[in-house]
Simulated assay, not measured.
Amino acid sequence: MKIIRSRTFTAERPWGALDIACMNGITARLHWTDRPYRWHVNDGEEIFAVLDGRVEMRYRENGEERSAILETGDVFHATVGTEHVAHPIGAARILVVEQAGSV
């Protein structure tokens, strides 16, 4: 049993993470960041939930770059093959659920 106060979580570096659980090969991790990640494609699907802060999520769809501002409480679902990159607007805390070992 765990209770995690996401608003107080910080990491020593951008995209540092707290491993919450690994359930049948699917991980749930809490990330803290104040810097962009990098363009990438996950090994499978990804759920990206903004728990605190704001994030500009950039993604490519049919070769065209798009973006959306994710507010606290918003969720981004990256389907298989979706190239994307997260750009936090200030500090943000994000819950990421994905296949274990994914980028």
Rank of each mutant, 00 (worst) to 15 (best):
M1S: 12
M1R: 10
I4W: 06
I4V: 14
T10S: 13
T10G: 11
A11D: 09
P14S: 10
P14L: 01
W15F: 02
G16H: 01
G16C: 14
A17G: 02
L18Y: 04
D19A: 01
I20K: 02
A21N: 14
A21M: 14
A21W: 08
C22H: 00
G25D: 02
I26V: 11
I26C: 08
T27G: 12
T27F: 05
T27D: 15
A28L: 03
R29C: 00
L30M: 10
L30R: 08
L30V: 03
W32C: 03
W32L: 09
T33S: 15
D34R: 07
R35V: 02
R35P: 15
P36M: 06
P36N: 04
Y37A: 10
Y37N: 15
W39R: 08
H40F: 07
N42V: 00
N42F: 01
G44M: 05
G44C: 08
G44R: 08
E45P: 14
E45Y: 02
E46C: 02
I47V: 14
F48T: 01
A49N: 14
A49F: 11
V50A: 14
L51H: 02
D52W: 04
D52E: 15
D52L: 10
G53T: 00
G53R: 07
R54H: 11
V55F: 09
M57T: 02
M57Y: 05
R58E: 15
R58C: 12
Y59A: 10
Y59L: 13
N62M: 11
G63N: 07
E64Y: 06
E64V: 13
E65Q: 13
E65M: 11
E65S: 13
R66D: 12
S67V: 03
L70N: 11
T72D: 07
T72C: 13
G73M: 14
G73V: 12
D74R: 00
D74N: 08
D74H: 05
F76K: 08
H77A: 15
H77G: 14
A78L: 09
A78D: 09
A78R: 12
T79D: 11
T79A: 10
G81M: 04
G81D: 11
T82F: 00
T82P: 07
E83H: 01
H84N: 11
H84Y: 13
A86G: 03
P88C: 04
P88V: 09
I89Y: 05
G90R: 08
G90S: 04
G90M: 06
G90N: 06
A92W: 06
R93T: 07
R93M: 12
L95T: 01
L95F: 05
L95A: 03
V96Q: 00
V96M: 04
V97S: 07
V97F: 05
E98P: 04
E98D: 05
A100M: 05
A100K: 03
S102L: 03
S102H: 00
V103K: 09
